[in-house]
Design a protein around this nucleic acid. Structure first.
Length: 450
RNA sequence: UCCUGAGUAGCUCAGUUGGUCAGAGCACCUGACUGUUAAUCAGGGGGUCCACAGUUCAAGUCUGUGCUCAGGAGCCA
C-alpha cells in the first residue's frame, strides 16, 4: 500500500475514536488558557479540536504549541475522543506535534474583512470556512451535472476554446493575435460545435470555460465562467424544457443529499431548496408580458440624458431586464421557464415557431430567490434556407459558418439544447452574496490577480 | 460606456459647524490563567489620514483634478 493511503483525515475521525492518530494540516484557530492550549486543526476535509495540556507533553512540545500561529502547518499526534463541546464533534488529546512551518502575520483574521481585501487575498481566502464550503458545493454540483448526463445516455464532447468568430455574432469577444491567418477569439459558447457533435453521437454535452468581454460589473457576472451545454438530436423545445427541469431538480436534490454540512456552514435555508421539484412553472413570453401589464411593471429605458424613463404598458417585443425578471419570479418558490421569445430579442440560430412567425422556440429558466437567469436554450433552426437567411440578416461572415450550414445540408434533423451557467447555479444553491465567491479564482473586468 | 458611493494603523471603522484631532476594537509583542469556541484581564509597539493643486492664520475635514475600489444600469449564463 502506498504511503499516502494510510494518511488519516479529519472527516474519518468517527472510525478511530479511542485510537491514536497522526493528522496533517493547518492551524485554523487557537485559543489557550495557561496550561491548556486549544488548536483547531483543519486538513481540507474538516476541522478538529486538538488539546495540548502542559502536564501531558514535554516542556518543549508545550512551548511549541503555545507559539503556534494561525495557518501554521503541522503534523499532530494524539488520541481521538468524542467531544460535544469541540467544533467538529471530535477532540485530539495531543501527545506529540511537529511544526512544518510557522506562519507569521497571516492577513485574514477571524474578524470581519471588507470585500476588496478578501478578493485581493483570494489565494488565502479559499481556506476560510465559508469559501471552503462553497468550493465543496461547487465540486458537488459539477459531479451532479456529469452524473446526470453520463447516466442518461449523453456523451461528453468538448468544444474548442479558440474560434474564428463570434458564436452569436456579438462583438464581446477576446482577441488573440497568435495565428498567421488572422485573429482568433476565445469562445463565448461551445454550442455550435455541440450541434455538430450531437449529429454524430445523438445526445452530447460540452462542459468548459467561456469568455465574455462584456463590460459588466455586477454580482452576477464573470469575465471567465463555466458553462455546461447539452445538445440533443431529435429533441424539440418541449423535450428541451423537460430536460432542463430534470437537470436542475437532480442537481439541487443531489446537493441537499450530499452537502448537508456545507449548506449548514453557509447557513443556507434548505427548506427553500427542498421545494425545487418538478414540475416547475412555465409561461410563454406573451403570457409574461400580459402579467407585467396586469401588475403595472413598466419597461425602464434611459433617455438621451441618461435618466430612467418608465414605459407603460410594457411593449410586446422588448426583452426583459432584471426588474421584469425579479417581478415575475417574486411570486414563485421554484424555477420558472419562460419560452417563445420575440424574434428580435434572441440569437440567429433559434428556430422560428411554426405556429407564430413573430417568436422563436427559445427558453430561459429563471431561478427563485433572485437567482436570475440560470439557463438559456432553444430548438435550433434546422432548415438550410431559413438559417442562411438569418446569417445574412445578422451580417455574419458566411465563410466561417459554412461548416455550420453543412449540418442542415447533410441529414438535418430537429435538435435542441441549452446552456447552464455553473457559477450562477453555485451562487443560487449556496446563497453566496457575489458570483466571485463561486469560482476559485474569479476573473472580472478589473481583476486578474490572484 | 453611463450613474451612484467609498478611500484614516496589518484589518474593520469613528473622527460633529475647519481650531489637543492622530483615535477605538481586533490582529501583533510581553505577562497571568486547566475547558477555550471571535476566550478573558494587565501592559506595549504600530500612521504618506489615496495623490497633487487650491482656499485659509489654520485642512483628515472645504474646492478642483487624477488614481484605486465597490455595485447598479445596459449586455448576458
Amino acid at each position: 500500500m502506498s504511503r499516502y493511503k494510510s494518511y488519516q483525515y479529519i472527516e474519518n475521525l468517527s472510525d478511530v475514536v479511542g485510537k491514536e492518530v497522526t493528522l496533517r494540516g493547518w492551524v485554523f484557530n487557537k485559543t489557550g488558557k495557561g496550561k491548556l492550549q486549544f488548536v483547531i486543526l483543519r486538513d481540507g476535509t474538516g476541522i478538529a479540536q486538538c488539546v495540548i495540556f502542559k502536564g501531558n507533553v514535554s516542556e518543549e512540545i508545550f512551548e511549541q504549541a503555545k507559539a503556534l500561529t494561525q495557518e501554521s502547518s503541522l503534523i499532530i499526534t494524539g488520541t481521538v475522543k468524542k467531544e460535544d463541546r469541540a467544533p467538529g464533534g471530535f477532540e485530539i488529546d495531543v501527545t506529540d506535534l511537529e511544526i512544518l512551518q510557522l506562519s507569521k502575520d497571516y492577513p485574514i483574521t477571524p474578524k470581519e474583512h471588507g470585500d476588496s481585501f478578501l478578493i485581493e487575498h483570494r489565494h488565502l481566502w479559499l481556506r476560510s470556512s465559508r469559501q471552503h464550503a462553497i468550493m465543496r458545493v461547487r465540486a458537488a454540483i459539477i459531479k451532479a451535472i456529469r452524473d446526470f448526463f453520463d447516466g442518461n445516455g449523453f456523451k461528453l464532447m468538448d468544444s474548442p476554446l479558440l474560434t474564428p468568430n463570434a458564436c452569436e455574432g456579438t462583438s464581446t469577444l477576446f482577441e488573440t493575435d497568435y495565428f498567421d491567418f488572422g485573429k482568433a477569439y476565445l469562445s463565448q459558447s461551445g454550442q455550435l460545435y455541440a450541434e455538430a457533435s450531437a449529429l454524430s453521437l445523438g445526445k452530447v454535452y460540452t462542459f468548459g470555460p467561456t469568455f465574455r468581454a462584456e463590460r459588466s460589473k455586477t454580482r452576477k457576472h464573470l469575465t471567465e465562467f463555466w458553462m455546461v451545454e447539452p445538445e440533443m438530436a431529435f429533441f424539440d423545445i418541449n423535450d428541451d424544457m423537460d430536460l432542463a427541469e430534470d437537470l436542475i431538480e437532480y442537481i439541487v436534490q443531489y446537493c441537499l443529499k450530499t452537502c448537508t454540512r456545507e449548506l449548514a456552514t453557509l447557513e443556507r435555508d434548505t427548506t427553500k431548496l427542498e421545494k425545487v421539484k418538478r414540475p416547475f412553472h412555465r409561461m410563454s413570453y406573451s403570457e409574461a408580458v400580459d402579467w407585467l401589464i396586469k401588475n403595472k411593471v413598466p419597461l425602464i429605458q434611459k433617455d438621451s440624458e441618461g435618466k430612467d424613463v418608465h414605459i407603460h404598458p410594457f411593449p410586446w417585443g422588448e426583452d426583459f431586464g432584471t426588474v421584469q425578471e425579479e417581478a415575475i419570479m417574486e411570486q414563485f418558490d421554484k424555477p420558472c421557464i419562460i419560452h417563445r421569445y420575440p424574434v428580435g430579442a434572441k440569437a440567429f440560430y433559434m428556430k422560428q415557431d411554426p405556429e407564430n412567425s413573430k417568436v422563436v422556440l427559445a427558453m430561459d429558466m429563471l431561478g427563485p430567490e433572485k437567482a436570475g437567469e440560470l439557463i438559456g436554450g432553444s430548438q435550433r433552426e434546422d432548415n438550410y434556407d431559413l438559417l442562411l437567411e438569418k446569417i445574412k440578416q445578422h451580417d455574419l461572415p458566411l465563410d466561417e459558418f459554412k461548416w455550420y450550414l453543412d449540418l442542415r445540408k447533410y441529414g438535418s434533423v430537429p435538435h435542441s439544447g441549452f446552456g447552464l451557467g455553473l457559477e450562477r447555479t453555485v451562487k443560487w444553491i449556496t446563497g453566496a452574496a457575489h458570483i466571485r465567491e463561486t469560482i476559485p479564482f474569479p476573473r472580472t473586468i478589473y481583476r486578474i490577480t490572484p
